[in-house]
Amino acid sequence: MTFLRGERLAKSYIISRGWWQKEEIQAVHDVSLDLDLDIEAGKNVGLVGESGSGKSTLVRLLSRLERPSRGCLHYRGKEISTLPEKQLTSFRRQVQIIFQDAAASLNPRHPAEKILAEPLRNYFPAFSRKERRDKIDQVLQQVGLSPEDRKRYPHEFSGGQQRRLAIARAVIVNPFLVICDEATSGLDVSLQGQLLNLFLDLGEKFGVHYLLVSHDLPAVRYLCQRVVVMYAGRIVEDLPANRLDASLHPYTRALLKSEPRLEGSFSPQFLPGEPPDSSAYPAGCPFHPRCPERIEICAREQPFLKEISARHRAACHLAGKQ
């Protein structure tokens, strides 16, 4: 059974500009996404897109931190998008999130011990004090911290250690899926490498699966077997990571070509213009004003995400036609 399935998820925000003017911002449009998370479909999924592409909103919808404006969210076959918080306990435990800014995601006034005890207390109320303590010590060690760090406050940890602590809090409840929202972006190379390996190790040890949300393609390729590309609030392509070179959507290809490389001379494909404003997406395909391969239909008709081959979907009028 599919672990988590979003069906035509959409989220819009009303922003008031002045007293009377209201503006609607469509952050996520009709996104359908199956997170099977089995070996075949790929244990770890990467969600790639640039800032403003709606990937952070999609993450908040998938983790039910926000309710979708439209669409359904199925968790193990059960519709949960409108369930009250009290009935979400199992879902909440199985789906954990690691936020981009680890420092901000740790309560500055709680020591490490208390930060880790909070989810344990909520999800495993039967644990005795001793069991909780042992579990905390064990997880601290598994993420590369030491049990002596229990009493320390977040600001006493280095940036890398704060991230490890945030990871510890996510895996301590044995989740099935951990969503990493830009969890390795903007870090020093060696720290990023350490964290990526930590993710891999924890994945094996605990059977954790990842949804890695990132704009960092090399990291996604390293950790994930499946890549979902978003643009302007929609999924434009969804394909196995090892087939990225055979991607069909011009945006995915532009992303790949923009990635700086050592080999060969670096000549990034030039995307003219700017990413679209989420309050006014262009008609037709949202990418068409910047697309180097646009044809006449692109400005009129919105392409739908269609199956190109097994486990490869793309939303482009040209896909599958060449």
């Binding site: 190379v189 060696s190 990023q192 350490q194 390996n197 090399p218 990291a219 390729r221 490389r261 050592l262």
Partner: peptide, 22 residues
């Protein structure tokens, strides 16, 4: 060389990041 082995773009197999911190 350790820095390069920490980066997925330059290291083909499993990363071998530098241990510890600066």
């Amino acid at each position: 060389s350790a820095l390069l082995r920490s980066h997925p773009s330059f290291c083909p197999g499993r990363l071998e990041p530098i241990n510890g911190s600066p």
